[in-house]
Write a protein that binds this DNA or RNA. Sequence first.
DNA 1: ACAGCATGTGAACCATTATTCATAATATAT
DNA 2: ATATATTATGAATAATGGTTCACATGCTGT
Lengths: 207, 207
Amino acid sequence: MAAKLTRRERERQRHRREILAAAQDLFARKGFDKTAMAEIAERAEFAVGTLYKFFEDKEALYRALILDTMRDFERELSAALKTPGTESEKLDRYIEAKAALFVRHIPTARLYFAQTAGTAFLPMAGLDRDARAIYEKVLGSLETVFRNGIRKKLLANMDPKMLVLGLEGLTNAFLDELIERPDDFSAETMAGMTKTIFFERIRLKAK
Amino acid sequence: MAAKLTRRERERQRHRREILAAAQDLFARKGFDKTAMAEIAERAEFAVGTLYKFFEDKEALYRALILDTMRDFERELSAALKTPGTESEKLDRYIEAKAALFVRHIPTARLYFAQTAGTAFLPMAGLDRDARAIYEKVLGSLETVFRNGIRKKLLANMDPKMLVLGLEGLTNAFLDELIERPDDFSAETMAGMTKTIFFERIRLKAK
DNA sequence: ACAGCATGTGAACCATTATTCATAATATAT
DNA sequence: ATATATTATGAATAATGGTTCACATGCTGT
């Protein structure tokens, strides 16, 4: 499986990753337009020309970064939903995994947000579509879990798509707060709140 | 109060609004960097130079637009929270008002989102702070309502800040979907779902 | 009707920054 | 050790797009 690569090829891949790592941080903090290729090059300790040996152009670099990021997150989140247990437990695990993942990789999380959280101003022909496709995998897995939970009468009988939307909205709101103002509260508190609000009643009396 | 303005001055204000309207749509669809001053000028049917008679520079134009937008929304949302009734009713009204408002003003809503929904890549010195300050007013009003509802034992005793975060996350997720994929479901469905998820239990059995 | 002032114009200017490419450095093979 | 292929360099180029300003147009009041 793991094809034996030449030293050259391994070095090349390492350099590629170094460039992406430098870009990651800059794009996550300043966005696409305000990040200059020269800046990425400097931080990665390469000349600008070198970046073009790895990526067609700035957009291709960004695209590669986003898609890598999305795939990593998708893999981890989908995994959390596949561990054995009841649907309730799967969802709990999803919430915890998402919180842990985002806290551990803040710059990455920002990029993931920028791409998944609705109004990303990035009609960068195609990227939106590809990134969305990856995100849809997560949403699809989530929907399946809800659907099964409902069938087994473990969860309230509501439109699974809506439940997915709701859970994502809730977790994203808390995680965004956690990432931008990390002192406010911990990942555990956030996960707990999500579960409480999403799974338990809030209102004590009917209106 | 309403000072009698000269025809000249009225015309001038109208032109200013026309420029902002043209900019609104472009910024909402393509974002700050991808929108050119020449483009705004063309759409507003003015020469580029004219824009500079009204706004110091591109950033000032954007800033004015964002702050106007934020203030409008803040006013309307805060009003919904001030109508008489129980805290539960106030929150219901807030959710409905927000949905109606966003559906009625989609480009405006996008800008509002871009600015309030966390990861907006706009460290445009100061703007972030000012916009945030306006948004905080809404959050503050909301928090007060929760606080009162809790005190009167109408709402579950949870950290009001968390409840605010949760409600905002939920409404934003649904509204974003509504704005980006308007065919999926209506404003009423969205408002209903928000209330159901936020106020009623979802999980039928304890885990 | 005319002077004077406010407002609008858009070609020219300039700064920024993505991209290229001739050259240098370095690794690999013979 | 030398030739050859691969990879890195960064000054030069070109395109984009924000901003300016000398001038034109058209109100307003006398």
